[in-house]
């Protein structure tokens, strides 16, 4: 018996195989996100499908000998099923969100292509589509970086990291990515001889050089939990006033515990400057920090700032 999922796939498979004559088995399985075994099962089901009546001439024809011999699929006698079904609401929403995410990273010419593709999709589906917003800095910067990635040339950035002095690193750009709502450039830093990520909204200028990018290989995976893969990341536990619960929604935290009249969060910290800024921002809402020495930087920075306020 066929499942709903399989029937939905078959209804798209039949027009696909007609618009792609002699489609290759492996490619087709990939297009539909299934294994080749599943695809062969699908073809076997189609073999019994066709027009009402069930006479031999009414059935969909698939040349199973060719499939077995050369891995190519030939399907015929299904002209009445030449177009796929409309998108389901879930499919339309998933596709549009994915495209909008691409749009948030792209700039210039590429961005215009996505805008028009989105407009056409929305006209075709008529569904109200979810919005997507990523902190990706300026479109001009993104466009220059994308062009530099495509052109394989080294660029010089004007960059100011969290709590750090501005710098102008020379980097070989690899790709633009998004994590937790922020856009980043992944690039090979020529000075440090290592992979680095740069937040896009902290890049204020991009100067394209004529220097070609050498063989830098693939950038490391920067998936969910990327911080945990950094060997230098240390765990810090903060006990906070309840009104500081917003931190859980804005920063990647490992665990949150509700205590009586307080909350406790575990954070992975790879950058002491980041923790210093966070503790300063939280101010009086911080009740305690474990290990205590993790708070030393913030304490010193606060004392320095107070001195500056007194001395001006």
């Amino acid at each position: 018996m066929t499942s709903a999922e399989q029937v939905a796939r078959l209804l798209a498979l039949v027009p696909y195989l007609q618009s792609h004559p002699d489609a290759e088995l492996g490619t087709t399985a990939e297009v539909f996100g299934v294994s080749t075994e599943q695809l062969l099962e699908d073809l076997n089901v189609l073999w019994y499908c066709g027009l009402p009546g069930g006479m031999p001439g009414d059935l969909i024809e698939i040349d199973m000998d060719t499939v077995a011999a050369s891995g190519r699929i030939r399907l015929s006698n299904a002209e009445y099923l030449a177009r796929p079904m409309r998108f389901t609401p879930d499919e339309a929403m998933s596709l549009v969100v994915a495209l909008r995410a691409v749009r948030e990273l792209a700039g210039g010419h590429v961005g215009e292509g996505i805008d028009s593709a989105l407009a056409k999709l929305e006209r075709a589906t008529g569904a109200p589509s979810p919005h997507v917003a990523v902190a990706g800095g300026s479109e001009e910067i993104r466009e220059r970086l994308t062009e530099a990635v495509a052109g394989k040339v080294v660029v010089e950035l004007d960059y100011t990291g969290a709590g750090l002095a501005p710098s102008s690193p020379l980097v070989a750009p690899a790709q633009l990515i998004v994590r937790d709502g922020f856009g980043y450039l992944q690039a090979w830093s020529l000075e440090r001889g290592a992979w680095r990520t740069y937040r896009l909204d902290r890049i204020s200028a991009v100067r394209v050089t004529a220097e070609p990018v050498g063989d830098i290989g693939e950038p490391p995976a920067f998936g969910p939990g990327w911080l945990e893969q950094r060997p230098d990341a240390a765990e810090v536990t903060l006990r906070l006033a309840p009104e500081a619960a917003w931190i859980a929604e804005y920063h990647p935290i490992r665990a949150l515990r509700q205590l009586r009249g307080a909350i406790e969060v575990d954070l992975l910290v790879a950058d002491p400057a980041w923790l210093r800024s966070l503790l300063l921002r939280l101010g009086r809402a911080v009740r305690s920090v474990v290990p205590p020495e993790a708070a030393a930087g913030a304490r010193e920075a606060a004392a320095e700032a107070l001195a500056a306020y007194g001395a001006e």
Binding site: A8, R9, A12, L13, P15, Y16, S19, H20, V31, F32, G33, R83, P84, M85, F87, E91, A92, S94, L95, A101, V102, E104, L105, A106, V110, V134, L145, T146, V149, A150, P173, A174, Q175, L176, I177, V178, R179, G183
Partner: peptide
């Protein structure tokens, strides 16, 4: 599955040209 339907309708999405972008 939405992209498979587009391919079935004769559209051929081609990611190769935007290799520098990896949104998620």
């Amino acid at each position: 599955s939405a992209l498979a339907k587009l391919r079935a309708a004769g559209v051929d999405p081609d990611p190769a040209r935007l290799s520098g972008l990896a949104p998620s």
